[in-house]
């Protein structure tokens, strides 16, 4: 593994220009994806995880716009590229898989044509080669009888099969990075399991890195190497998946894990109080502060910076400020 990460996102800030003012949706987000790894970006709706993906692809539409930060892909700053150069990157170097397999495919073209199009647009193949590659890719994503299915239209396929087609399209140009935004959320649990297995296999087979965006900590536990937890536009905790899920540091991560049913049947669940703050109405200081069971004076002063809490593990929480007189109330918290 090279020292330089495949993608380094530095201080990414994406804002929406709304009538009431400019609202940060992604607020000073930094993370990196190393070659060959799967990073999970987990958060609730409105946490900014999808906008982070669109920002990396430079696909944010008005009223949104990227207001700051750098996107270093293989050492090159994507935010400095013009639209034409960026178009070369999309699909060829970084591919995006959307959540809704129903709307991401064009209903009037066969799935074979849509996969071939990706190759033709990037000048990777002749028509005949592209058609042959489409069949190979469909076979690779385990669509039975690929040679005839290649002539099917999207409506002839089930949701799970359509998601396989999208994965095949994403892999067509052999990108180095695939961003999958909630790739299994619209699917049934048994189909979800098959698609997650497929993503894992494809990652190994095509040597791609994966940014997996999801709200489901179960999917995270099964699929990723490292995880970044987003809340209200900020990454509040990052670390390798095992310590983050087994020994969560940020009170939000702890609350999310605790609220999942799994304890004694019939018991009340450990709910997080309150609701996700509205865009543009973030509390001062830590955005999770008003809902946090561990809040104290420092939490309202300013948004907390990253404090290291373990190997490769950090949390934006004043509980881990080494200079604070306040002691961590949770004996199980790792440092």
């Amino acid at each position: 593994m090279a020292d330089e990460p495949l993608l380094r996102v530095e201080h990414l800030t994406t804002v929406f220009n709304l009538p009431g003012g400019t609202v940060p949706v992604v607020d000073d987000v930094s993370f990196e994806i190393r070659a060959g790894e799967t990073l999970g970006l987990v958060g609730e709706s409105g946490s900014g995880k999808s906008v982070t993906a669109l920002s990396i692809m430079r696909l944010v539409q008005p009223p949104g716009r990227v207001a700051g930060g750098r996107l270093l892909f293989k050492g090159r700053d994507l935010s400095a590229l013009d639209e034409r150069a960026m178009r070369e990157v999309r699909g060829a170097d970084i591919a995006l898989i959307f959540q809704e397999p129903m709307t991401a495919l064009n209903p009037v073209f066969t799935i074979g044509d849509q996969i071939a199009e990706t190759l033709l647009v990037h000048g990777r193949a002749t028509r005949a080669e592209a058609a042959a590659t489409a069949v190979e890719l469909l076979d690779a994503v385990r669509i039975p009888d690929a040679a005839s299915r290649v002539r099917d239209y999207p409506h002839q396929l089930s949701g799970g099969m359509r998601q396989r087609v999208l994965i095949a399209m994403a892999l067509a140009c052999r990108p180095a990075l695939v961003i999958a935004d909630e790739p299994t959320t619209a699917l049934d649990v048994t189909i979800q399991a098959e698609i997650l297995d497929l993503l894992r296999d494809m990652k190994a087979r095509f040597h791609v890195s994966l940014l997996l965006i999801t709200h489901d900590l179960g999917v995270i536990a099964e699929t990723v190497d490292r995880v970044a937890v987003m809340y209200a536009g900020r990454i509040v905790e990052t670390g390798p998946v095992r310590p983050v899920l087994r020994n969560p540091n940020h009170p939000y991560t702890r609350g999310l894990l605790a609220s999942i049913p799994g304890g004694a049947p019939g018991q009340r669940l450990n709910a997080i109080e309150g609701s996700v703050p509205r865009l543009g109405a973030l509390p001062s200081g830590c955005a999770f502060g008003p809902r946090c069971p561990d809040r104290f004076d420092a939490c309202t002063t300013a948004p907390p910076p990253d404090y290291p809490t373990g190997v490769d593990h950090a949390a934006k929480c004043y509980l881990y400020n080494p200079h604070s007189a306040f002691r961590i109330p949770h004996s199980d918290a790792s440092r």
Binding site: A221, E222, R242, L245
Partner: peptide, 21 residues
């Protein structure tokens, strides 16, 4: 059996024995 085995558990150490129907 297939349905229960497909539930993703938020525990990275949980044993996984996926049964396909």
């Amino acid at each position: 059996r297939a349905l229960l085995s497909a539930i993703p558990l938020p525990d990275p150490d949980a044993p996984r024995h996926r049964l396909v129907l």
